[in-house]
């Protein structure tokens, strides 16, 4: 019952976002600001984890592939496919749920608790359109870009680790990358990235926008938004794999 009413409120929030901006220029400015906050703001952590996850997958794959019958270049194929299919979209988005999700939820929560949202409403501004919409659109644009970046950097990290640890030379890794490449995997990863971006931004915006109480509640709902987004990402991950692969 409680879940249903919460879900209804969530849908109504999304529906309420679609209204005509009072002033297109200010909305654009807010949107660009959010792109910088969300996209550029999480660039560092994405670069770091993607390089390392690629490196680790090269090392671990070679550790598990002991058979002399399989050529070394298969390591590159495996690294490529796991990074594109799972690591770049899912792992990165789980981390982003923490980074971006808590940022969105606590920003909106703070504005709610200190009556800044009410102040905007009183001026005659639709705060769902002005505050929530730019965050969601910015996430939908920047998160998939971050995921694509993570794919590239992940593979690069694997290539680097392969030569650094003496597992396989760069030329062999590159040869492996070209073998049996399925472009559909990238499409699938992008579908996942858009889905996860929607989950992260809308859920954290919902928990932040509807905070009631004091600063303690802001912390609580930002934690809740991270947990709920992560669970939803994992469920969606499974559902998409079952449906589309």
């Amino acid at each position: 019952m409680n879940f249903l009413s919460q879900f209804g409120k969530y849908i109504l929030m999304l529906k309420g976002m679609f209204s005509k901006p009072e002033n297109a220029k200010l909305y654009w400015k807010e949107f660009m600001h959010q792109c910088a906050e969300i996209g550029v703001g999480s660039l560092g952590i994405v670069v770091l984890i993607s390089v390392f996850m690629g490196a680790v997958s090269t090392v671990q794959t070679s550790y598990q592939l002991v058979s002399p019958l399989i050529s070394k270049s298969a390591i590159a194929q495996i690294v490529r496919d796991t990074v594109i299919l799972e690591f770049a979209p899912t792992l990165v988005c789980i981390v982003l749920a923490g980074v971006i999700g808590s940022k969105i939820a606590s920003e909106l929560g703070n504005m709610r608790v200190s009556e800044q949202i009410d102040a905007l409403e009183i001026m005659g501004i639709n705060t769902k359109t002005y505050l929530v919409m730019p965050k969601i659109v910015a996430s939908l644009i920047t998160i998939p870009m971050l995921v694509v970046l993570a794919m590239g950097l992940g593979i690069y990290g694997g290539r680097l680790a392969g030569s650094a640890a003496g597992i396989l030379p760069v030329e062999e890794f590159d040869r492996g990358l070209m073998e049996n490449f399925m472009p559909y995997n990238v499409t699938f990863a992008l579908i996942k990235a858009y889905t996860f971006a929607f989950i992260i931004s809308t859920i954290s915006a919902f928990f932040g926008y509807y905070v009631s109480g004091g600063s303690l509640e802001i912390g609580r709902s930002s934690t809740k938004s991270v947990v709920v987004s992560c669970v939803m990402i994992l469920l969606a991950d499974y559902a998409l794999a079952a449906l589309l692969l």
């Binding site: 200190s114 009556e115 800044q116 102040a119 009183i122 005659g124 501004i125 639709n126």
Partner: peptide, 22 residues
């Protein structure tokens, strides 16, 4: 909601906690 929005452009409000955009 839209009519209220229009009316509110003629309303100024000072909140008990000021509610400045920080």
């Amino acid at each position: 909601q839209d009519e209220r929005k229009l009316l509110r452009q003629q309303i100024g409000m000072l909140f008990q906690g000021s509610a400045l955009f920080d």
